[in-house]
Simulated scan of single mutants.
Amino acid sequence: MIQQVGNETEQLLSKESAIRKVVNEINADFRQKNFVGVIKSIELRVVPSSNKIVQLLGEIKQFNDDNLYNFGEVNLFNSEQQSREENNRKAVQYLSALNKSISGYRNSTITLSDSFELEFRVVENDNDTGWVDKLANVGSDGTDVLVKAMINIMLLNVFKEGATRNQFKDFRLHCMMDEIGKLHPNNVRGILKFANDRKIFLVNGSPQSFDALAYRYTYQLSKKRDTQLDREITVVHRIVTNHRL
């Protein structure tokens, strides 16, 4: 049982290197194409999980690795009785502790996201958040939205580049961005450029038009009754085309 837990834990934790690679690529992406505006720096890092079950699984894996042939039934490699019996007691203690922890756990499974934690560090003008585990209170509501959007754009770009690097020369991606109205007009232009530099094109919806000339196209959506279909349909009118972009 200990060996099975150890092997499955190793499979779970083996993904850490891939996660660190993605985080490093996101950090490099920001350094290569910096955001000119209030956000001077964004960094991410992977830290060990604070999940108690994950920590216990790590201990069990280490115990299994250190005593692979020195617990359980007698075999050619664990003929020393005292050491084997001591390790058997430890194995039982580990399994009992694991059973107790699982019984009180809020979820039915341990997922990859439980095996690590992300921390963020954002420098906004002269405000340095230090390493924090939540992207809250970076600044105003608008700044929070801006930082989250930038991180999502960089994450999209990392996966886009990885998936298309050897297949498409000029792959472009469109995506929706919510809460655009919370951004300062200067930051609207900034986030659009930040995305466009990565060949990601943002589609925003708002009851009001904010800095329409920052966009290539501005559309107006309205509802009308289609008598033939006998239902409401959405009508799209292009009202601005910016040929300078």
Rank of each mutant, 00 (worst) to 15 (best):
N166S: 14
V54F: 04
V132P: 06
D230I: 02
R216N: 11
V236F: 15
R216Q: 06
E43F: 01
T109Q: 08
G205C: 14
T111K: 10
G139T: 03
N24C: 03
T143K: 06
M154T: 11
N67D: 10
W131A: 11
Y215M: 07
N64L: 00
L57H: 04
I151W: 06
R121M: 03
L221N: 06
F30S: 03
R165I: 05
T109E: 07
K90S: 08
F201M: 01
L202A: 03
K182G: 04
K148P: 00
S222T: 14
R89T: 02
E73Y: 07
S140G: 14
H184A: 13
V122C: 03
Q32D: 14
G72R: 12
Q3L: 13
K21Y: 08
R45G: 01
N166E: 15
R89C: 01
N70D: 12
I2V: 15
G130P: 06
V54L: 06
L245A: 02
S113R: 09
Q93A: 10
I42R: 11
R216T: 09
S49D: 03
F210P: 01
Q208C: 09
N166A: 08
E161D: 07
D126T: 12
T143S: 08
A149N: 11
N137F: 10
F63W: 02
G72D: 03
E85C: 00
V47E: 10
K90R: 11
V122I: 13
P207Y: 06
T143Y: 00
E59R: 15
S41Q: 15
L112T: 07
L57M: 12
P207M: 07
V138P: 00
I233K: 11
L12I: 05
N75F: 02
V235I: 10
Q228A: 10
K169T: 08
F35Y: 15
I19S: 08
S14M: 07
Q55T: 12
L57I: 01
F171S: 12
G72T: 05
L173G: 06
S50W: 04
S206I: 04
H184R: 13
P207N: 13
E10K: 12
R231H: 04
F194R: 03
N157C: 02
I2D: 02
Y105S: 11
F171V: 06
D144L: 04
A28K: 12
N157S: 15
M150F: 04
M177D: 00
Q93S: 09
D133Y: 14
N7E: 14
E117N: 13
D65R: 15
N70C: 02
I151H: 01
P207H: 13
L98F: 05
D211I: 05
S108T: 14
A195H: 06
A163T: 10
K52N: 10
F30Q: 03
E117K: 14
S79M: 12
E73W: 10
K52E: 10
T218F: 07
A163W: 08
L183Q: 02
V46E: 10
V122H: 01
L95C: 04
L57V: 00
D226Q: 02
V235W: 07
R20Q: 15
K61T: 04
S96H: 09
T218K: 10
E86R: 12
T111F: 03
A91R: 06
F171R: 09
V123E: 08
Q55L: 11
R172C: 02
D211Q: 11
V23N: 13
F194G: 03
Y94E: 04
Y94F: 13
R121N: 14
V188R: 00
E124H: 09
Q3S: 11
E85R: 01
E43P: 00
H237A: 13
K134V: 14
